[in-house]
């Protein structure tokens, strides 16, 4: 208990908030629209995908509120890829600090994760606007959204810690991760509804991925209970297999923490 207290000590919180603040201040330094870009970027991305996948190649036929459904997928995946990518280079990027002062290393990874969280928050505001425009009925299940987001965050945090520590030793990691993120984008039902995949085994395999499970749960909780929105729990009929994504998340977090902790003391000499 004391150790957890030490982790969130006054100094560490001050450091964390200062790093996040600086990051945020500097992110849109020199751009005319400034913070507005945090909202404009996902909007433009959405407009492009909307034109391609709603108007040109209507993939989402039969899915209620498909534009909102699509947007939910985009912002959750963007959050995951932004957070892991930024964290991956965070320790090496702050090498000058690590070599010269003794700050808790995890604060650095944590601060990039919070920057990504702030962006997610802004995107959720845009999502709320779309929901209003698209006449999505607010359902009681929306209260589960924070829990689902927490699960996605924990999953991303575990991966981030692992990647950030690994990148100190092997610079190849960034290229490998780039490929994995690309592949993950198509392996997760972001653009297409899961119902387009007719093979049930494939459907099940896809939904074992915590990102896919989290995304489908979020859509189910917020947008529609229509059976087209398949969730992991439904697919496995509430069976034990449906717990696999949660087990994966937990395992990723623990191994990320353990590996990061084992490497943290030698970051200063290895960077």
């Amino acid at each position: 208990m004391n150790r957890i207290k030490a982790i969130f000590s006054k100094q560490n919180r001050a450091l964390l908030s200062e790093l996040v603040r600086t990051d945020f201040k500097l992110r849109y330094q020199g751009s005319a629209l400034g913070y507005a870009w945090s909202l404009l970027r996902p909007l433009f991305m959405f407009v492009i995908l909307y034109i391609v996948f709603v108007k040109a190649f209507p993939l989402g036929k039969g899915v209620p509120h498909y534009p909102v459904y699509l947007f939910m997928g985009i912002i959750l995946w963007n959050f995951f890829s932004e957070m892991t990518n930024q964290s991956l280079g965070s320790i090496v990027g702050r090498g000058d600090l690590i070599r010269k002062i003794s700050i808790p290393r995890w604060v650095i990874v944590f601060s990039s994760s919070i920057s990504a969280l702030i962006n997610l928050g802004l995107n959720l505001i845009v999502l709320a606007i779309f929901m209003a425009l698209n006449h999505v009925d607010i359902m009681g299940s929306i209260i589960f959204l924070p829990l689902i987001l927490l699960e996605v965050y924990i999953f991303a945090l575990g991966i981030s810690l692992f990647l950030a520590a690994l990148f100190v030793k092997f610079r190849d990691v960034s290229y490998i991760w780039e490929v994995i993120i690309q592949a993950g984008f198509y392996l997760t039902p972001i653009l297409y509804p899961l119902s387009k995949i007719t093979n049930l085994t494939f459907q099940k395999l896809i939904l074992l991925n915590p990102m896919a499970q989290g995304l489908q749960d979020a859509r189910y909780a917020v947008i529609s209970h229509n059976p087209v929105v398949v969730t992991t729990n439904q697919l496995f009929n509430g069976g034990w297999y449906g717990m696999i994504p949660y087990v994966i998340v937990l395992m990723v977090l623990v191994s990320g923490l353990v590996y990061f902790k084992s490497q943290a003391s030698s970051f200063a000499e290895n960077i």
Binding site: K10, Q11, A14, L15, S17, E18, T22, K25, I103
Partner: peptide, 19 residues
Amino acid sequence: ELTGRENVFLNGALLGFSR
């Protein structure tokens, strides 16, 4: 890119001082 004041607080936080 930060002002002198902001840098003092940032540097202070890095050295383990609260705001």
